[in-house]
Write a protein that binds this DNA or RNA. Structure first.
Length: 125
DNA sequence: AAGATGACTAACT
DNA sequence: AAGTTAGCCATCT
């Protein structure tokens, strides 16, 4: 790896750091998908890295890891796994609704958080 | 050390 | 609608 690339490229730790920052900023009752987190972290196309970063996050960070789901609005753990059910419980306890095991990503996006705050959890905007 | 593996996704059939 | 493919890339075998 040349010095030139090293100057412009982020280190692995930098990338995790950025991802953690984005995830920590997801408001309660909202979800983002892996790809979106990657984009917001300035790492477009690196959705897989987001999952990895979440797994590596130090526990004391208390990252709201459960607010990240896949692009289909579904939890990316097996339904019968303890992690999967924990994630779902956490989300439902903050008001996120599942229909057929999937979340309406648009409806529960941070963008819409202000709408829910003002007008309640209505289906239509 | 090469190949497999994932908390992924978009674009194809 | 459900599989497959290709891109992704740090880690694990």
């Amino acid at each position: 790896m040349s010095d030139q690339r090293k100057r412009t490229e982020l280190s692995d730790e930098d990338r995790y750091q950025r991802i953690w920052e984005i995830v920590s900023g997801i408001p309660e009752g909202c979800v983002l998908n892996y790809g979106e987190v990657a984009r917001l972290a300035g790492l477009p196309g690196k959705a897989r890295l987001v999952g990895r970063a979440l797994g590596r996050a130090p526990k004391r960070m208390q990252l709201p890891w459960h607010r990240v789901v896949n692009a289909q609005g579904q939890i990316s753990f097996p339904d019968d796994s303890s992690k999967g059910s924990r994630q779902r419980d956490l989300l439902e306890s903050e008001g996120v609704e599942f229909v057929d095991d999937a979340i309406d990503l648009e409806r529960f996006s941070p963008e819409r958080a202000i709408d829910r705050m003002l007008w309640g959890p209505e289906e239509k905007g």
